[in-house]
Simulated scan of single mutants.
Amino acid sequence: MSYETEHVRNVGDGIQAITGVPTFTELLTNSALAGIYTAIRRSPGITAPDLVETADVSKKTVYEYLHRLEQAGLITETGDETSPSPYEAEDFELQLTIRGVEVSITPELVAVVAHADEYPIIARVRDDHGLVTFALAHDLIKSHSEGDITVRQIASLTNLSHGTTYDLLEALYAIHDLGDADSSPTTYTPADVVDEDDDLLTELTDQQ
């Protein structure tokens, strides 16, 4: 089976190990770290005291995470000598190769991880099914919001159950503010989708 989406693409066999900078990759497993980075990215100029007020971790941990993010080049102080200093986040794209499949880690994926405590389905898919499936499902759900693919097809391509797919879809719709109340993913039922493959399904899946 072959995948080709925004965050997942095939790069052939050979590389088996995941490589990358620890702080970058931890953004996919540490919801508090991801939340601080995402908060800075969404609110340029935010300060450490602002983050302490809203974070679910201690003041000490907030400052530790800020230091780590700054050391990794993910955030920068933008003020002069005044205190507290405002921060801005840097955009990035980190490529990981997992069993011959290349996965792009971007701020958009990190923003999803930042909500893992609010939506346990995020950690469940990531931890139980792996990073490739997590990133692939993310991309396919975005395609679903644009009307390009059905829920049943997402479940088939990711090997997720329909219930898990619906739960993840609902979470991502809320996090990314996809669609509106009239097109909420909760209005979809198995009777609303079709069994036939469409053009997108053909493009995404190559039967060997």
Rank of each mutant, 00 (worst) to 15 (best):
L200I: 07
R42K: 15
N10W: 09
G179W: 04
D139I: 09
G20M: 05
P190H: 02
D182Y: 11
D91E: 15
T202D: 15
T19S: 15
S184H: 15
S85R: 12
S31Y: 10
V21Y: 08
L109S: 03
D91G: 14
Y63M: 06
G147S: 03
V8H: 07
H176L: 14
D192V: 03
E64W: 11
D197A: 12
A171Y: 03
L66Q: 09
D91H: 13
G179N: 02
L51T: 07
L178M: 12
A34T: 00
T54M: 05
V21H: 13
A116V: 00
R42V: 04
L94M: 12
L136P: 08
I46Q: 07
T82E: 15
D198T: 04
A171L: 01
I15L: 13
I46T: 14
E77C: 02
S143C: 11
A55N: 05
S83T: 14
L140D: 10
Q153H: 05
V125F: 02
D128M: 01
E108P: 06
S184P: 07
V21W: 02
R152F: 06
D80A: 10
T189W: 13
T202C: 06
L136V: 01
T202H: 15
K60I: 11
T164R: 01
P86I: 03
Y37D: 08
A114H: 08
P185A: 11
A114E: 04
S2C: 05
L201H: 11
I121M: 08
D195C: 05
D127S: 09
Y63D: 03
P120C: 00
Y37F: 13
E196N: 04
Q16Y: 12
S156G: 10
Y3A: 04
S143F: 10
A39I: 03
D182W: 09
V110G: 08
E6G: 09
H144E: 09
R68C: 02
L140R: 01
V125G: 07
P107M: 11
E26A: 13
P84Y: 12
E6C: 02
V125S: 03
E88I: 04
P44G: 00
F92N: 06
L200K: 12
L157F: 06
A48N: 09
V151G: 11
I149Y: 04
I141N: 11
V194I: 11
T47P: 10
T82M: 09
E6S: 08
V103K: 00
I75K: 01
T158M: 01
R126M: 03
A111K: 15
E77V: 08
D50A: 12
L33Y: 02
T82A: 14
E4C: 02
V132G: 00
E4K: 13
T29K: 06
A123G: 03
T54L: 02
K60D: 14
T150D: 14
Y65I: 08
G147A: 06
Q153F: 00
E90R: 01
D182T: 12
L96I: 10
I36D: 00
H144T: 06
L33N: 06
Q16L: 14
H162D: 13
E88T: 15
R126H: 03
E102P: 01
A111H: 02
T165N: 03
L157R: 10
K142Y: 13
K59T: 15
Y166K: 12
R99N: 15
V110W: 00
G12D: 10
D197H: 09
S31R: 10
L51I: 14
S31N: 03
E203A: 15
I149T: 04
V151R: 13
L74R: 00
